Amino acid sequence: MCPEQLDAEAVRDDVALLLSVSMELAESLDVDTVLQTAVEGATHVLGLGSGAIYLLRDDELVLGATTPPLPADFPASLRRAALADHPHVRRSVESRTPIFISSVAAADLTPEEAKAVEGRGLVSLLYVPVVARDRAEGVLIVGTTTEKAEFTQREVDLCRALSVEIGYALANARLYESVEAAARDLRAAYDATLEGWSRALEMRDRETAGHTERVTALAVDLGRALGLPEDRLGDVRRGALLHDIGKMAVPDSILRKGDKLTDAEWETMRKHPEYAYRLLSSINYLAPALEIPYCHHERWDGSGYPRGLKGAEIPLAARVFAVIDVYDALTSDRPYRHAWTQEAALEHIRSRAGIDFDPAVVDAFVQRVSASGEGASLPAADRG
């Protein structure tokens, strides 16, 4: 085989190896996973026995990933170290070029550098800067347990290409984490606002103080017991917090009336799910949470409001909440009646299974209450 063919095959092999590592790096946006994939891929591509990635944090080096795993007695001081104590790393990062040490024994190492390589049993080392968008992010360190006279140009080129791939993967992972953190902060801000809205409503409708907090906790608990996925439970929580938000549009003369409501007043009160829909439907973030404010007064037999939904047409979150809402209402004192006992409330809910409530949800709720042993201290809801 002629030299040109050998060179072509070597290039193809290098491209295949780099592509393999690049694809692995692209599969994760978690910084720790990216770093571990990178260091394992680098040692595999170069056929070396040991590797580590240190990240730059101002004037410090912080260990990000290593292969093989560190020994139990690896000094903690070498997991986080001053850059000044590792001049070979500093020179590689500042010059943006790989630095090769063919023999650790013959090299002029600082005590800290010597301690690091001795702990890994290394004989030769290569420091490769990891750069992302013209910013030095850290250094890839690979080594052997036998002396290596020199790295070939092919290996140096592979190292440079790898460091670029690692840099981009690291930058993307960090960007993703920052976006995720911003999204979490935004969700927390939204949720704090929703809690404020629910407290404002309870301040207006004094007879239901504490109701929202209680039914929200129980709705999430029962939803989880019924198998709702975790990513849906956040919507259940938000929907429960806002279940009566439509009452903001109901006049005080009706909402705070101490006596029973007239038929006309009930007609107004029964519009609060529609008011909730009008208020919240234009907020994309709250769209998945609308099921409870809009549908928790629907009934299993189709006699509920505002749309007369029947059976499984009613969203599961709303079916769950309907049971809890009534339980809380019955077991709470109201100006127009005393609280029912837990036993009486559960008996009423059982009697309405298949009429007002989803029988499966009733069964799950009754089992949950019976198993809790908490008695009448379990939550309670309000009229309307």
Score class of each variant (00 low, 15 high):
Met1Leu: 14
Cys2Met: 11
Leu6Ile: 07
Glu9Thr: 08
Val11His: 03
Ser22Ala: 15
Leu25Met: 09
Leu35Glu: 13
Glu40Ala: 11
Gly51Asn: 08
Leu61Glu: 02
Val62Ala: 07
Leu63Arg: 02
Pro75Phe: 08
Asp85Thr: 15
Arg91Tyr: 05
Pro98His: 10
Pro98Gly: 05
Ile101Val: 15
Ser103Asp: 15
Thr110Arg: 05
Pro111Gln: 06
Glu118Ile: 06
Arg133Tyr: 13
Arg133Gly: 00
Asp134Met: 06
Glu137Val: 06
Gly138Ile: 10
Leu140Phe: 10
Gly143Met: 13
Lys148Tyr: 08
Arg154Gly: 02
Arg154Ser: 03
Val156Lys: 03
Glu165Met: 12
Ile166Gln: 03
Val179Ala: 04
Arg187Tyr: 09
Ala192Gly: 03
Leu194Glu: 13
Glu195Thr: 11
Ala200Arg: 11
Ala200Gly: 05
Glu202Phe: 01
Met203Lys: 09
Arg204Tyr: 09
Ala209Glu: 14
Gly210Leu: 04
Gly210Asn: 02
Ala219Leu: 04
Ala219Cys: 02
Asp221Gln: 12
Gly223Arg: 03
Gly246Ser: 07
Ala264Pro: 01
Glu274Cys: 04
Arg278Ile: 03
Leu279Asp: 03
Ser282Trp: 15
Ile283Asp: 06
Asn284Gln: 11
Ala289Glu: 08
Arg299Asn: 09
Gly302Phe: 06
Gly308Tyr: 14
Arg319Ser: 14
Val320Trp: 07
Val326Pro: 00
Arg334Thr: 01
Pro335Leu: 03
Thr341Leu: 08
Asp356His: 05
Pro359Val: 05
Phe365Val: 00
Ser370Val: 08
Gly375Ser: 08
Ala376Asp: 15
